[in-house]
Write a protein that binds this DNA or RNA. Structure first.
Length: 504
RNA sequence: GGAGCGUUGGUCAAGGGGUUAAGACACCUCCCUUUCACGGAGGAAUCACGGGUUCGAUUCCCGUACGCUCUACCA
């Protein structure tokens, strides 16, 4: 009888959520939904010195933007509340004490200075089976010494005590069987001097309390896994332990190593899902959202960074991902992040999108740039006309803005060199022609234009680019006559007149 | 230093004892387009190295090298 699938994402609220974090959420979410399970978000705020104001709210905003709604969390509630470890502080101590009572953990009174000194004295110092006998702890102190320290309220921590030369192994859902020799594992601190648990104690206690069935986390946790396995074995039984899956890391695009916020700054791409301003340093980091990414594209791109369906399909909606995702197809090795490919995903999703998907986002964007959408049906037409040219949502400002606003920045240098009286007289005649009879339809406008160029004896080809620059301000955009047709007679003539004046 | 994990084109990757070793991004060339895109056609890999096993290894085994992660009273 297998238990209900319950997974958790357990971030610590120390800053913006970056690519690796969101991908971990995604994989958790996909796995839970695929198996009709629950997706829990638990806040691991056991380190009070690293707590950052606003970080937790930011995490939930990010999840909402991505469409990855938790079933249980401090925000959404649930049967295992509270979901913040700081609020569960009382629940951890007894397990640490239980281990001490069983001789599997001990009190240690060494100060930070003591430890620093040791580390300086002994190269590669580890608090473990070979060194703990020379430290200040309940293993080495006499009963009365110990009692005196406790009575004097001396700060202490509780550390696990692992016997050397034991094998600890477990089956990782991605990597298969992984082995460790306890001789190499140090006596990790379980309970800190302030009474808070460390991550190592808190994960197992909470995963047990919340009946987590599968635990996904970054590969950086693999080396401490034996401690967690040990704790599970002694505290709750291996049969109750969640199945582990250690996810590959997301690496820097250049060189090697884990992707960091610094790389984004350096290489000019976002690393966080959304804008994040660190309240302590006032440092600002831009996010994928603000950079113009669609959440569908963002999650699609992230899913493919470490997983592949085995088919040639690359574009997946969240629903398709839920259906197709499988841990067996998650890679073991890390992947370098490629912003160009990320943009490609976004471009594809914009091409797939309809006006209804993105209208409000683009409206807001336009508002920031003082672009006023006067006509809804015109906006729809424009959207269909230019969306193939937009890689990021923000590109709509340039690609669609001139339909609603007379361009102020005319790239005059693009036509100046070849501008002459012949062209000037053509456009003057064109103004007259269109003033009298402006055929509203694009192909008819083109016919009028070409007919005029023939009577004026100028090649139409030499006039297309000037017209384009006059209407849109630069060398881009869809067909010129489409544009003229949409912006209409008055505006078309006005823009031609304006530019002629500028060229005079 | 130690432990753990990893290694298929520049990047993401499929594949898996016998194949012309998929596909995508990027890049280059060409076509389409009197703009920019879209779209279409083409171009690149002795599968890290060395030993085995085998009729045959990119694929299995063992080493080596390289890379990454961890080695905190941080997660």
């Amino acid at each position: 009888m297998s238990k209900k699938v319950r997974v958790r994402f357990a971030p610590s609220p120390t800053g913006g959520l970056h690519l690796g974090g969101v991908r971990t959420v995604l994989y958790n979410y996909l796995f839970a939904k695929q198996n009709g399970g629950d997706f829990i978000v638990r806040i691991e705020d056991t380190d009070q010195t690293r707590f950052v104001e606003g970080a937790e709210e930011y995490i939930f905003n990010t999840l909402e933007w991505c469409g990855l709604t938790p079933d249980e969390s401090p925000k959404h509630g649930g049967p295992h509340a509270p979901y913040r470890q700081s609020e569960r502080k009382e629940s951890y101590r007894k397990y640490a004490e239980e281990l001490v009572a069983k001789g599997l953990a001990y009190y240690a009174f060494d100060t930070a200075e003591d430890l620093d000194a040791k580390r300086k004295e002994i190269a590669n110092f580890q608090y473990g089976h070979s060194t703990r006998i020379s430290m200040k702890n309940s293993l080495t102190l006499s009963d009365t010494e110990f009692k005196n320290l406790i009575d004097a309220n001396t700060p202490y921590v509780i550390r696990v005590k692992l016997e050397p030369h034991q094998e600890i192994k477990f089956t990782d859902l991605i990597r298969g069987e992984v082995h460790f020799d306890t001789t190499q594992v140090d006596d990790k601190v379980l309970l800190k001097a302030d009474g808070m648990p460390t991550y190592h104690l808190a994960v197992v206690v909470d995963d047990y309390a919340m009946q987590i069935s599968h635990a996904f986390r970054g590969e950086e946790w693999l080396p401490s896994a034996p401690v967690h396995i040990f704790l599970w074995d002694k505290l709750f039984g291996l049969e109750n332990m969640p199945q582990w899956a250690h996810l590959p890391l997301i690496l820097k695009p250049d060189g090697n190593g884990k992707l960091s916020k610094r790389d984004g700054d350096r290489l000019g791409f976002p690393v966080f899902a959304m804008d994040w301003k660190d309240p302590r340093t006032n440092e600002q980091a831009t996010g994928f959202k603000e950079r113009g990414f669609l959440p569908e594209a963002f999650t699609n791109m992230l899913a493919m960074l470490g997983w592949n369906s085995g088919s040639e399909q690359e574009l997946f909606s969240l629903e398709e991902l839920i259906e197709k995702f499988s841990l067996e197809r998650v890679h073991k090795g890390g992947a370098k992040f490629d912003f160009e490919k990320a943009k490609w995903f976004n471009h594809e999703w914009i091409k797939k999108s309809t006006i209804y998907d993105v209208r409000s986002t683009i409206y807001n964007l336009f508002k920031e740039h003082n672009i006023l959408v006067d006509d809804e049906s015109k906006f729809e037409k424009v959207f269909e006309l230019v969306k193939d040219r937009c890689v990021l949502l923000n590109d709509f400002v340039q690609q669609a803005g001139y339909f609603f606003q007379t361009p102020t920045n005319i790239d005059i240098t693009a036509l100046q060199p070849k501008w002459d009286d012949k062209k000037k007289s053509f456009f003057t005649a064109l103004i007259q022609q269109w003033n009298n009879d402006f055929a509203g339809d694009a192909t008819q406008l083109e016919q009028q234009f070409k007919a005029l160029s023939e009577t004026q004896q100028i090649k139409a080809g030499e006039l297309m680019l000037p017209l384009r620059v006059m209407l849109v301000g630069g060398k881009f955009g869809p067909g010129v006559f489409e544009i003229a047709s949409i912006i209409g007679k008055e505006e078309t003539i006005k823009r031609i007149e304006n530019t002629i004046a500028m060229l005079a």
